[in-house]
């Protein structure tokens, strides 16, 4: 077995496994209504089959593919930092509020791209968060979470 394009073969394998999982889960979708010609499980079954086949096709292509572009060197540290910031935002946006989380996300994003000025970037992020919050909550009548500020500021709209 010789594979010319390992990342593509791996992606193909992942797609194949996903397809198998989808086929398995589709079988568990209850279908019991006699008056339905086609039930809710039919389309997921098609998707599962399609994933399985396209995974196989990708693996096949990865073995014979002619034009393999070299993957650029990858630095995963910035990716990890940005991902962490997104997950922290998801976990804490309700309790801490939009503004501090925007500060954190902006800081992490800038850091990930090599800008190490922590105080400055945190400041920019907080200011950006505050400006967006003002425009959205007071201008457009949507609510971004205020966090602890909720008690201090006048109610929106």
């Amino acid at each position: 077995m010789f594979v010319r394009n390992p990342p593509k073969a791996l992606f193909g394998c992942a797609t194949l496994l996903l397809g198998a999982a989808v086929l398995f889960l589709a079988r568990k979708i209850p279908v019991g209504f006699g008056y339905d010609v086609v039930g809710p499980a039919m389309f997921p079954t098609i998707i599962g089959a399609g994933l399985t086949l396209s995974g196989l096709l990708a693996i096949f292509e990865a073995r014979v593919n002619e034009d393999v572009e070299a993957m650029p060197p990858v630095d995963l540290l910035p990716v990890a930092i940005i991902c962490a910031a997104l997950l922290i935002e998801a976990a804490a946006i309700r309790s801490v509020g939009w503004i501090p989380m925007t500060g954190l996300l902006f800081l992490a994003g800038a850091w990930g791209f090599g800008d190490r000025r922590i105080a400055l970037n945190l400041g920019i992020g907080l200011a950006m968060g505050a400006a967006i919050l003002a425009a959205f909550d007071y201008g457009l009548g949507l609510d971004l979470p205020l966090g602890p500020l909720d008690a201090l500021l006048p109610p929106a709209g």
Binding site: A85, I93, L105, G109, A110, G112, G125, G129, I132, L144
Partner: peptide, 22 residues
């Protein structure tokens, strides 16, 4: 760095404000 940090902020703004859930 500022450009992509800003894009991340806009992305999380767009995502959160659609349904308001984390």
């Amino acid at each position: 760095p500022w450009l992509y940090a800003g894009i991340l902020v806009l992305a999380s703004l767009g995502t959160y404000s659609v349904n308001g859930n984390a």
